[in-house]
Structure formats: C-alpha cells, structure tokens
C-alpha cells in the first residue's frame, strides 16, 4: 500500500494541486462575469425615447414641479405622462434660442429635440409615443392621490425625520418610488424584461413594503399594525 505524503511538503505536488483547481476557478470567474455583466443585459430589451427630454431643464431652468405636468384628474386618477395639451401651456412655439456656432453639443441637441417636438408632434396634433418606465402591475391597485394625502398626513409635520417635500411640490415624495430625474439631461432608455414584459423600473413588492411594512410606521400597540395599512387587499386585486 502506497504511503501517504503531506502535499504541502512537495512543490511539485502543490503545483499539481493548483493546476487541478484552475478549471474550477476559471468556471467560477466566467460565471461571475456572465452573471454580473452579460446575462442581466440580455434579459432586457432597451428602447430610447422618441425625443430627447430633459427633466433637468424643465425643473431647474423652467422651475417646474412634478405636479405641473403629472397631475391628478378630477376623478382621482393620475395622468401619468402628459399629453400635448399640457406641453402647449408653455410650448406654443420653439422656446429654445437657435444655438450659435460655439454652442455645446448638449445645447444643439436640446434645440433639435424641441424643434422636432413642435414640428412633428405639437403642430400636427400627434401624440408623442413616449415609452413608459413604470407600468403598474395588473394584480394591484395604486392611487397616487391616496399616497399624497396619506403620506403627508404625518410627514409634513416630521420633516426632521423624513422630509418628503410638500403637497405643492412633492418631488421628494415622488422620488421615494420613482427615479429622481431632476439631474438627468437625457431620459434613460426604457428597459423591458423579455420574460415578464415589465420594465426594469417597475416597483417590486419589497419597494412597497419599505413603507407599508416599515417598523417605524407601526402603532405603539405591539400588534404589528402600521399606519400604512399592510393588509393584502390594500394593494392586491
């Protein structure tokens, strides 16, 4: 019977062992690269918006707030992406001055985008086929007005703990669920999951539970009830 030797005592043996591990490490690293960098991008179809739209320009330069364009109808439903008539309240023509020779590429692109919007969509009365970042899943109810009202019931008076803005300018409340677009000069592409059909921006239930199941929202009665009702039927159809 062959006598067992301690592998660490033999360089050749150590070399042999390391070589034996190489395929495992190769597979491991390849999987990491695929899993983190390649496969996630393959799961989504990416679409750019039909027009360059800058939230930063509208919010910083024009001083608009979210509710100026994304308002609540009289029936309580949310308008979502504004239609041309909303845009026309400001854009009765091309507002951006035509860029000169020394204009930056960003300025030129902004001018071209507005020109295209006015000439191709606004004047002919054609709606812009904007791609939506977030469609509400079919299995849930969601009311924007209810959240405006309910969240501000407490948060207006506790700004030190969590400032959600004001009902007149609810940008911080909006950014709790939506991507903060204030600083974006170009809207991000819309990514749609090829399996589910939902966009990458669609909220998961865990996002809802950040508030609905937040221990900070619990009543002090120790029964696990929250100010933001977390019963199934509150959201689910």
């Amino acid at each position: 019977m062959e006598e067992k030797t301690n592998c660490t005592e033999s360089p050749a043996c150590r070399q042999k062992c390391a070589a034996a591990l190489l395929p495992f490490l190769g597979g491991f690293i390849a999987a990491l690269v695929l899993g983190w960098l390649v496969i996630p991008s393959l799961l989504f179809d990416s679409e750019t918006q039909p027009l360059l739209f800058s939230h930063a320009t509208h919010m910083k330069k024009a001083g608009a707030v979210c509710l100026d364009c994304h308002s609540v109808r009289s029936d309580g439903s949310f308008t979502g992406i504004p239609q041309n008539d909303v845009c026309m309240s400001c854009h009765n023509g091309i507002l951006t001055p035509e860029p000169g020779q020394g204009a930056s590429p960003v300025e030129k692109a902004a001018y071209q985008a507005e020109k295209s919007f006015v000439e191709n969509y606004l004047n002919p009365g054609k709606p812009v086929p904007w791609r939506k970042h977030q469609y509400q899943p079919q299995n849930v109810f969601f009311s924007h007005p209810a959240h405006f009202q309910k969240c501000y019931t407490c948060h207006l008076t506790m700004q030190g703990r969590l400032n959600l803005g004001t009902p007149e300018n609810p940008q911080k409340l909006c950014a709790t669920c939506h991507v903060s677009l204030e600083k974006l000069d170009r809207d991000a592409p819309v990514e749609t999951n090829i399996l589910t059909g939902y966009s990458s921006g669609t909220l998961k239930m865990s996002e809802c539970e950040r508030c609905h199941a937040n221990p900070g929202h619990f009543y002090a009665d120790g029964r696990g009830r929250t100010f933001a009702n977390n019963a199934c039927f509150t959201c689910h159809k």
């Binding site: 597979g27 690293i29 390849a30 999987a31 899993g35 983190w36 996630p40 399996l195 589910t196």
Partner: peptide
C-alpha cells in the same frame, strides 16, 4: 471542475434569483 466552478460562481450573481423571480411573474 469548470461546471462546478461555474455553478458556484453563478450562485453569487443575481442571475438565478432574478430568473426565478421573472419566471414566477
């Protein structure tokens, strides 16, 4: 060995969990 390494590696990426979630939807 490569397959074992890939299996171990893929488990520390979001792929299996993301696919599981997507398939459920």
């Amino acid at each position: 060995k490569i397959a074992a390494g890939a299996s171990a590696g893929i488990m520390v990426t979001p792929v299996p969990w993301k696919l599981l979630d997507d398939v459920s939807i």
